[in-house]
């Protein structure tokens, strides 16, 4: 009831301000997007390492076609972000039945669908279906340096539908608070049950840090630190650390990933992702047995030619327990190590 009243108040507040606006500055419709495809070869000769995308072994496979539209009129704006293909459907967003499925055809194809209203330069509100504010990596291949994804990314939320308020104290400090559906839900049948918040600090130019929390039932509680520092024009260092606990302490995960990246030229950069990921006792997560951990090292290059980026990548995963297949004929997990090579092509416009 309280949440209903709050939402009603926010809506009335928004409607009043909209009616009072006198600014009618119209910006043109901004259309951008990307296309990505990849080849992956797993050295066990079968799909093995748990990564959200780049899943298919020894195959030239599809990522997605991504189309994003944005328009602002005065203080109001919208973003519509559509995606077609495995990366943008069954691997990252829900179908209408609210299940991840690569075989079900009725995906809504939507990565972001939200409207925003900037009440002032410092305060804005946003409502709709949004890419999650939690974590370092994102669904769009344009936003990541590495092509395969971390365990932390795959285990966290992908989207949060809800309503959120952003307030910037200055260019250096800002907060966000919001009410959200359960993780990755177009429609929440148990009510808007998650609370999320974010504190952003930017101590110096090029360094931003986000402290995130999202909590609710039955989603559980995740604390997340995401920070990146563009130390020089050439060198960038990123860090992601997270801790997640399922309701009733039925399991969860904790882990950290470090992302050093160095641009040797405007066309060639190398980046490493070193990740430690541990499944808490109670539930296995992405084949990582409850109570055990996995370490993953991913070395990627970004070769840029205008809008096209080629990403050759080598990845080595090492589990505390046997969580990978040794070969094509393995009937069960029989090795602690796995490795793969992939080559992705990402075109952004």
């Amino acid at each position: 009831m309280k949440i209903r009243n709050l939402l009603l108040s926010l809506f009335v507040c928004a409607a009043t301000s909209v009616s009072a606006q006198d600014s009618t500055a119209v910006n043109p419709l901004v259309i951008s997007g990307s296309v990505d495809t990849y080849f992956k070869y797993d050295f066990s000769k079968r799909s093995n390492i748990q990564t959200s995308f780049a899943t298919d072994h020894n195959s030239v496979s599809l990522g997605m076609v991504n189309l994003t539209m944005k328009k602002s009129v005065g203080k109001a704006s919208f973003v519509g972000d559509l995606s077609f293909g495995p990366r943008g459907q069954g691997q990252s967003i829900l179908n209408a039945a609210e299940a991840y499925s690569e075989t079900s055809a009725n995906s809504f194809h939507i990565q972001n669908l939200y409207v925003s209203y900037a009440f002032t330069d410092k305060f804005s509100m946003t409502a709709g279906f949004m890419g999650t504010f939690v974590g370092y990596e994102v669904i769009s291949p344009v936003g990541n340096f590495n092509y395969s994804t971390s365990y932390l990314f795959s285990s966290g939320p992908f989207q949060n539908a809800g309503i959120k308020a952003n307030y910037s104290f200055s260019d250096r400090v800002g907060i966000m608070v919001g009410l959200f559906n359960d993780w990755n839900k177009y429609q929440d049948f148990n009510g808007v049950s998650d609370f999320g918040a974010q504190l952003m600090v930017s101590p110096v130019d090029g360094w931003t840090a986000y402290l995130n929390v999202i909590t609710g039932y039955p989603s559980g509680t995740e604390f997340d630190l995401t920070t990146s520092y563009q130390i020089s024009n050439k060198f960038k260092l990123g860090l992601n650390a997270a801790d997640y606990t399922m309701p009733d302490k039925a399991g969860g995960f904790s882990g950290a990933a470090l992302y050093p990246q160095y641009a040797f030229t405007d066309a060639f950069a190398l980046g490493l992702r070193g990740e430690y990921f541990k499944a808490k006792s109670g539930t296995a997560i992405y084949n990582v047995a409850a109570g055990s951990a996995v370490t993953a090292l991913t070395l990627s290059a970004n070769i840029k030619a205008g809008p096209l980026t080629l990403i050759p990548e080598l990845r080595f995963d090492n589990g505390e327990q046997e969580i990978f297949y040794r070969g094509r004929n393995s009937a069960a997990f029989d090795t602690k190590q796995a490795s793969q090579f992939s080559l992705a092509a990402v075109y952004s416009f």
Binding site: K70, M130, V138, G143, D205, G206, Q230
Partner: peptide, 15 residues
């Protein structure tokens, strides 16, 4: 650079 929300934001620190 495009961010997670489909918006373009400055890559601070690069000049």
């Amino acid at each position: 650079k495009r961010n997670r929300y489909g918006q373009f934001e400055l890559q601070q620190g690069i000049s």
